[in-house]
Design a protein around this nucleic acid. Structure first.
Lengths: 205, 205, 205, 205
DNA sequence: AATGAATGAGAGTTCATTCAT
DNA sequence: TATGAATGAACTCTCATTCAT
């Protein structure tokens, strides 16, 4: 009769709502700039009641970060496991990455901007997910080598980090300019990664 | 001829020391994690005395950010005004950018990580400098086109942002791995930007 | 014949269990250090359900104290009503008193340590029992005088309080040293009370 | 010029006043029943300012306990080092002990009633002092044996604890009855300890 | 130019208590 | 008879800021 296992459907739903409320508030004001009262207010409950769902403000931050990362990583897994060629997969990765600056993915933004305020113990699961993300991307780079779409001397760790960084940099454009076309940017970014700046058929250096 | 009153030589020196102390403390603990007492202690004075040099903690943050950004932007100006060819200048830019993850440039780190905690009014001068940095980089990209080292269809704003992002991404590697060779990374990064991943002479897509 | 409504057998049983759970928790953590959630958990129910048995946390404390004191006072009554001589009864009193530091008599410990946190209104019944205890002990002292085992000039109120205090002091030894022999201590204590420190047959002062 | 060593006379004075204010408030309401606001109010400052003198409420409690114990232990040292005979010293000890229930020695009361709320780390110095007190008392008992005023078979640890306990028990009388004559009580207590209840020259058991 | 002392506002957190179910 | 959920008031503690000296 009692809901034991699942901690009751209602609880699960409210907890998710709480995570989303926290994501929303943290992304707006920053972790330190936001108060637990702000989060509670967004959820429509009183401050103290928030502690029914989180043991501490820090735990809330951790849960928000995990929530934000998870979907994102799952997308990467799907791409990595797909059958497409290197170029197609690279573009999928870039699109996934850039897309999050348009979608209202507040939880991921919180992860990017605020995770440093977590104490190391609370960052381990986050780091695992992040490392997993990068490793899958490295796998994709390796398959690129196998397809002869990537030069052999390119280190895949270096490459993965470069891709991630470039996408984050372009994210700025998307955030600054609400008119920017994400797909067009993704196309250009992929092209730059594949061919560099130099005119085709001409090699400098 | 002697320095008068509030803007005496001594004051200027201590003020600079105060900015550096704040940079050091903010970079270690984050703006919100650091207290004015921490900053004062690093400077060797007492908490209240700090207000002789800053009107508020926020002003201290602003000054730190400006201080950090300025040097960095000046380097960029020097590169942009130089006479070298595109490849050489690109490498100089990348090296300058990556170098700051090794050099103990605390003020710049504070700018990167903490500037968001400034209220918009306090961010305008910062934005001006940042924009200036990017625009100089765009200029360099344009000269690259003139030299036929950069394809014409590449948008220089897009390109500048991509370079900045990629460098930031590689900064992670440098921070994570104290053994990483910054100059080697800069070389590989420049190469990737120039030629992409694809084997020379082969064009995909 | 069947138990009706609120005072059903089941209720009585659970209420007693609740008092014991509270005693156990309060004695471990102190009244203020323990939460109603702790008490509920020990009883195996949920926090809110506790209020089915107690109107407030304070009422719980009062009931625990009364429960603890009652048994203890009943023992005293039995001793006082017994037929033994003064020495034997004194030893019984001391043994009863010291024994509670060994037996897991949590409710009594709570009475001793935490009763002060009750508001005066809630302390009256407790004081009655305590006074009753001391008065019975005074009665015993009086019978000691009748038996010529106690000097006439010894005030029985003073004496009762001295006995209680000495026993409490020795309780410390029992608590500190789990090996301490309670019966041996009780014997020595009784002896000290009867004969003092001075060698037999020699009178100082 | 700067007050370095002594943390300034003014600070020392206010800190002492803070300890006394805390003693007064804790003894009235108990540690948990008293708020830091209460203590600050008694001192005539605002709540937050209290933290200029204490790092935490717990530290305040520790300092109060230490303050209360110290004087008391010093008295014991003086008695133990004196040259008087056993009876005189025992009476001095008892008088010192009982006297504190009359003197407004709030700090010692706090030590007795509230020290358990300190975490073990904070109790070590207290325990050292307490142990020291008891050991000096044991020394006195030993000298009593040397003087043949105490039977050889009486264990001095047991004896010390008995004396302490009896005094605490009689403290109740003093607290309950403001008219009670402390010196008369001390005399009777000493007498009881020396000669027991039994009529002089008669040995029971 | 610097300090000691104090302030006051606000934070996160805890918890006894309530009540519809 | 018991629960889950929520409440609200209190509490300890932190800290940027002020100011007389």
């Amino acid at each position: 009769m009692k809901p034991e296992k699942t901690e009751s459907r209602r609880y699960q739903k409210q907890k998710l709502a709480a995570i989303r409320a926290a994501a929303s508030v943290f992304s707006e004001k920053g972790f330190h700039g936001a108060s637990t009262a702000d989060v509670a207010a967004r959820l429509g409950i009183k401050q103290g009641s928030l502690y029914y769902y989180f043991d501490s403000k820090e735990e809330a931050l951790e849960e928000v970060c995990l929530y934000g990362l998870r979907q994102y990583v799952e997308n990467m897994d799907a791409i990595a496991e797909g059958e497409e060629n290197f170029q197609a997969r690279l573009r999928a990765v870039v699109t996934n990455h850039l897309g999050r600056y348009r979608e209202k993915n507040e939880a991921l933004k919180v992860h990017n901007d605020e995770r440093l305020y977590l104490p190391p113990e609370r960052r381990v699961r986050l780091k695992q997910l992040g490392t997993h993300y990068r490793e899958r991307l490295e796998d994709i780079v390796e398959t690129g080598k196998a397809e002869a779409a990537v030069r052999d001397e390119i280190d895949s760790h270096f490459m993965a980090q470069s891709i991630i960084g470039m996408c984050n940099g372009l994210g700025e454009i998307i955030v600054r300019d609400p008119e920017a076309d994400v797909f067009e940017l993704a196309r250009k970014c992929t092209d730059l990664l594949l061919h560099g700046t130099a005119p085709y058929h001409i090699q400098g250096d």
